[in-house]
């Protein structure tokens, strides 16, 4: 499917990433009219497994993949629709992203890939296929990076980036995240169900946001850029991160090993995100969730410069 409508800077500045559909995010993010979809909805490649559960299907199985231009340069892009089955990975959904990353692996000269995450993780009704697709995506992603492709993840959708989505995000070259962009493996309800409300109260939204939300991820180094909830902010971050993202090699992984080891040493005994932020040298750590993006970014950059070399 193609879309050639013009896009104005005004639209990019005023459109909420969180509120937009996957298709609108792609259309507004990329250079106007440049997107070409692979296996679009008209191909009707839907999940073969949802009939068994009498569940409705979506024509694109909840993910849009294709090619377009950003700042005049070609790239591949994939966008998950977080409102269809929570953006979860099923067989077809996952295979579309795997195929795109394998193309990135095989494209010379290498071009970047953007992944617009919006997912609760693996789709329950096709759990084995979904889980396996996560692993296939991670392998293809690493192969693409090894071939020189920068793979940048953008996270700020309704369903956040949970479960296997969190693992794929951790495999990317760089990540931009907004306030809404929660990144985690086990979701709040899953932890509460398995370990009890004393371990994690999933109804305590403030706890969820400060533990898994974009601000904490930026402050501990789990994401490289914290951005406003607009298409324009994600576009600017994508352009920056494509430039800065590191290559995939042994040196990078050694740097990441050191980065994660240091995190454990410095913050391993912290009981709450606020304790981490205080130890990062932020004077009024409790005020962090309420800061404007500008004020937060200034504080975050002072506490912890983005490294761009260890992911």
């Amino acid at each position: 499917m193609t879309d050639q409508k013009t896009v104005t800077p005004f639209q990019r500045h005023t459109s909420s990433w969180y509120e937009s559909s996957a298709r609108d995010r792609v259309r507004l993010l990329l250079d106007a009219g440049s997107f070409r979809e692979f296996i679009g909805p008209e191909a009707r490649e839907m999940s073969p497994h949802l009939d068994l559960f009498d569940l409705p299907k979506q024509f694109d199985d909840g993910i849009v993949v294709g090619r377009g231009m950003l700042g005049g340069k070609p790239l591949f892009v994939a966008a998950q629709e977080g409102r269809f089955m929570g953006g979860a990975f099923g067989e077809v959904h996952g295979a579309k992203l795997t195929g795109l990353l394998r193309a990135a692996r095989d494209t010379r000269p290498a071009i970047p890939v953007l992944i617009l995450f919006d997912t609760g993780g693996v789709r329950l009704q096709e759990a084995n296929a979904g889980e396996l697709s996560i692993s296939e995506i991670m392998r293809a992603l690493v192969e693409a990076r090894t071939a020189g492709a920068k793979v940048v993840g953008l996270i700020g959708g309704r369903s956040g980036c949970y479960g296997g989505g969190g693992l794929i995000a951790g495999t990317c070259s760089a990540l931009a995240v907004s306030e809404h962009g929660r990144i985690a493996v086990s979701g709040p309800e899953v932890i509460e169900t398995n370990r009890g409300i004393e371990e994690f109260d999933s109804k305590d939204k403030s706890l969820v946001w400060r533990t898994m939300g974009g601000r904490n991820r930026r402050l501990i180094g789990g994401a490289d850029a914290f951005v406003d909830d607009t298409i324009e902010a994600f576009r600017a971050a994508a352009l920056l991160l494509i430039e800065r993202a590191p290559a995939f090699d042994l040196d990078m992984l050694k740097a990441e090993q050191a980065r994660l080891t240091e995190r454990l040493q410095r913050f391993g005994d912290c009981a709450d995100a606020v304790d981490i932020w205080a130890r990062e040298g932020i004077a009024d750590a409790r005020s962090v969730p309420g800061l404007s993006t500008e004020a937060f970014t200034a504080i975050a950059d002072k506490a912890r410069e983005p490294r761009y070399d260890a992911r």
């Binding site: 690493v142 969190g166 991820r217 789990g222 913050f267």
Partner: peptide
């Protein structure tokens, strides 16, 4: 499964899991 706890998620469990996977994938490619 992965350890389900506030501490693990607070400190970025997704990165630690992905890092191990990346190390294994790099090793295989090398």
């Amino acid at each position: 499964s992965q350890r389900m706890s506030k501490r693990d998620e607070l400190l970025g469990l997704n990165e630690f899991l992905a890092h191990l996977a990346k190390c294994l994938l790099l090793a295989d490619m090398q």
